[in-house]
Design a protein around this nucleic acid. Structure first.
Lengths: 210, 210
DNA sequence: CCAACCTCTCTAACGTTGTTAGGGACGCTA
DNA sequence: TAGCGTCCCTAACAACGTTAGAGAGGTTGG
């Protein structure tokens, strides 16, 4: 059987995991597939299209973006879970945030968006606010993933850490903050901000501040 | 007088505004400076370093990242203002979010971070939480800027809008949301999420939910 | 005063990248 | 048997980041 478009996308994602976005060249991808580089242009219009397809594949693969809250499950727990799924999808593939960032929201995400807005409206939000809430979570997720992966790339490249012990003298509050957190757990850090967002939503619903 | 490193960075930022990150090539930048391409390597080690310098210049230029809350100003208003300044800094230069995203936090940002943590600790946060709060805002800012600029790039490139009227039939809640918001104002959208984050912080401080 | 040196720029070129042109082998259909 | 669509190839292009190496001009030191 001959090469299919999905084969190309799958191989591209696998190659991305290996060598990162910078190393993802059409020639190398073609070599992995046992094919010459221009052949890829039969399956894909240009590299940008390949990247778009990869972005979609990565998001779909995560298994997030589906379903409604389980019966009896509060909307805020469900929303947090969706956020975590999206974040994990981005973080488990190297440089995925960069690939997904430039990507236009695909049609296949519409059912998820509709479902989420529906749940939030049921919870008491105005439709416009529900959509804004969803956008906020999305933007936060991608910002976190992006920064996290930029940081990993730096470490793998052997650049000095953000907080080498010596550099914190002169910044007592910063030092206290780093000491208190112990080792930085990226997932915990992500959850902290996600929880802030969701708490903000709950507050607005229950008792608008001021 | 001969070319200085700052001249190069300034010209690079100006060129970025003109042609975007994709069009920012060393040859073109050199041409703008009336110089040959390899000459740039006297002022800069590689393109990555140039991008780092540009990122720093863009952030510094914004005038954010400084000062403490004015006397009598609540910390949340001040923090929101800082977030808006950073966002505006990113959004006013084309593709700035992409340039800044890969960038390592520079030493010059430490005073700002220290000052902010200090203010938040004074407000009652534990140092670790204060730092996490600051990270959350930062990640949200960059996520918003990134998505906003990706969207502008798409529109300039003539791609169809996110919500062409016809496509929303079948998604009643989505349609309601878009109708309610009228024209999408990116600044308003950004502020919405920023306010959620900050409300979340205030809530956590005043009355931890559950 | 002249030699050595540093600063800043140049031309020439290399390897790699995305992409296009054009052709050839295979299988299906009429 | 002829023709057409599918899928792949080799050859090549322009543009990119980057390196090698040389040269002009000012400054310094013996």
């Amino acid at each position: 059987m001959s090469l299919t478009r999905d084969d190309v996308v799958r191989a591209a994602v696998a190659l991305l995991d290996d060598v990162g976005l910078e190393g993802l060249t059409l020639r190398r991808l073609a070599a992995d597939l046992g094919v010459s580089a221009p052949t890829l242009y039969w399956h894909v219009r240009h590299k940008r299209e390949l990247l778009d397809l990869m972005a979609e594949a990565i998001i779909v693969e995560a298994g997030g973006r589906s379903g409604a809250p389980a019966p009896g499950q509060p909307w805020w727990e469900w929303l947090a879970e969706q956020g975590r799924l999206q974040w994990r999808a981005l973080v488990t593939h190297r440089d995925a945030a960069l690939v997904v960032a430039g990507n236009r929201p695909t049609d296949s995400s519409l059912p998820f968006v509709e479902e989420t807005i529906h749940s939030l409206v049921t919870a008491g939000f105005a439709p416009g606010d529900a959509l804004e809430n969803l956008f906020a979570v999305g933007h936060y997720v991608i910002g976190c993933a992006l920064e996290y992966q930029a940081e990993s790339a730096r470490q793998q490249q052997g650049v000095a850490d953000v907080a080498p012990p010596g550099r914190l003298s002169g910044w007592p509050y910063l030092a206290a903050a780093f000491n208190q957190r112990g080792g930085t757990d990226p997932a915990a850090s992500f959850n902290h901000g996600l929880q802030l967002l969701i708490d903000g939503m709950r507050t607005r619903l229950a008792d608008p501040l001021g």
